[in-house]
Computed example of a mutant assay.
Amino acid sequence: MTTPPAPRLIGPDAARGLALLGIVIANTVHYLSGSDQTVLFKQRTTVPWDRAADVLAAVLVDNRLLPLFALLFGWGLGVLWRRSHDRGDRAPLTRLLLWRRCLVLLGIGLLHGLLLFSGDIVHAYALFGLLLVLLIPRHPVVLGLTSLVGVLGLVAWGWFDGTSGLVSGLVPPVVPEVVAPTYGQSLLQRGQALGWSLLTAPLADIGLLTPLALGALAARVRFLEDLARWRPWLRRLALWGLVASVLGALPLAAILAVPSLVPAPGAAPGAMPGTGAGSPLAEIVLGLLGVLHQVTGVAGAAGIAALCALLADRPASRRALQPLAALGRISLTAYVAQSLIAAPLYSAWGLGLGGTVGSATATVISLGIWLLTLALAVLLARTGRRGPLEMVLRRLGRV
C-alpha cells in the first residue's frame, strides 16, 4: 500500500517564496556595471535614490535571504530523509534516493549556470547536499558541528564583502558574461566561470554548510513543524534573530550611506583616520564589519523561518501567506525564471540595461520579476499544477 504524500507546510514554503525576492534583488550586483565597487560589491554612486536602495538592501536583503534559501534546502533534505525513514525504507535506499535527487538538482543548476547565470546556487546546494545526506542520519550534534565548520567560510565571505571596495582588481568591475556582445560569447564566459566554480566549490562555498546543516538539524527535531513543543523557542528565535540581523547590518549599511568612508583605490585618505585605500586599518575595520554583516545574516535567516512558522499557525495570517507559499512550492522554477528574464534585460547581448541603470531602477525591475513569478505560482496553485522544473525533479529525482 502506497503511503499518501504528507501535506506541504505553509510556513517554510512562504519563507522560501520570500527568500526568492531577496535573491532576485541581491543578484543585481552581478549585472550592474559602470562604476567602481564599494562594500558588498555595490556600485559607487552619488545618486541619492540608488544609495538609498543599496542601504535598504544591505539591511534587509543582502546575506539574509540567500542563507534563508539555503537553510530551507537543508530542511527539505532532512524532511525527505525523515519521511523515507518513517515509511520503513532502509538507510542505504534512502541515501541512494536522496543522492539521485541531488544529482538531478546538480544537472539543473549546471544548465542554469551555463545557459543563463554563472552565479547559480543550485549546483552548489546539490554538491553539499551529497555530503549532507551522509550526515543527516547521524546524531544531531554532528549537524551542529558541521554548521560550525561553515562559519569559517562565512568569515571569509564577510571579509570580502567588507573590503571589496578597497583594492583595485580584487574582483573585476564588470562580469564578463554580462558585457559580452553576443550570447555565444557570454556562453563561453559562463562556461569558464562555471568550471572554476566546480573546481573551487568545496572551499569557496563552504560557508553554505552553516545554513544547510542548521536546516537539516531543524528537520531532525521537527523545529518548524512541532509548534506545540517548540513555540517558545520559535518566538525567541524570531525576535532575537531579526534584531541581531538588523543591528549586525547597520554598520556596513552606514558605510554605503556615506561612500566617502571607503575611498576608491588610489584615492587620498578618507574621512576616518588611517582609512586611505589600502591602509591596514581600513581593511581590518571594513573586513570585521563585513564578517558581522555575514554572520548575523544567518541569524536573520533563522529568525525569518521561525516567524513564518509561527504566522502559518494562525488562521488569519495563514491566508495571507498562501501566495508566498504557492511561490515557495515552485521555487526551483521561479529561481531559474528570474534569470530567464533578467539575463536578456541586463546583458549587452540583450537590452544592455546593466551598464545604464542604477540600484534603485534595478530594485524596481527585480520586484517586477518577483511579482511575475508570484502571479505564475498563484495561477499554477489554482489549477493544481506543479512548476515545470518541479515536475522534472519529481520525475527524475523522486524520493
Rank of each mutant, 00 (worst) to 15 (best):
P251Q: 08
R16Y: 00
T373Q: 15
A216I: 03
P176F: 09
G22E: 10
I10P: 12
P137S: 11
F160C: 02
L224I: 07
G384N: 09
L224C: 08
V378I: 12
G34D: 08
S84I: 01
L237C: 14
A375I: 02
I255D: 11
P251R: 05
L110C: 11
G129H: 07
L105K: 01
Q192T: 15
A320Y: 00
T200K: 03
L324G: 05
P172N: 11
T363Q: 10
I284G: 02
W157C: 01
T46R: 13
G276N: 08
A360C: 08
G354F: 14
G76K: 06
P181M: 05
G11K: 07
A15V: 00
L288I: 14
Q322S: 10
L145Y: 01
T146V: 09
A14G: 06
V392E: 05
G397I: 01
L340I: 12
A216M: 07
A325D: 05
A204N: 01
P140Y: 11
P140L: 11
L97K: 13
D13C: 07
V133A: 06
L18D: 04
I365F: 15
G113W: 12
F73L: 01
L103H: 03
P137Y: 06
L310F: 09
Q43H: 11
T361G: 04
W49C: 02
L97Q: 14
R382L: 14
R386M: 12
D50F: 09
R319V: 09
M391E: 10
G22K: 06
L286R: 14
G17S: 10
A362K: 04
G300P: 04
R235D: 08
V141M: 13
R51V: 03
G215L: 10
A301H: 00
L252Q: 09
L324M: 09
F160T: 10
L281H: 05
D54R: 13
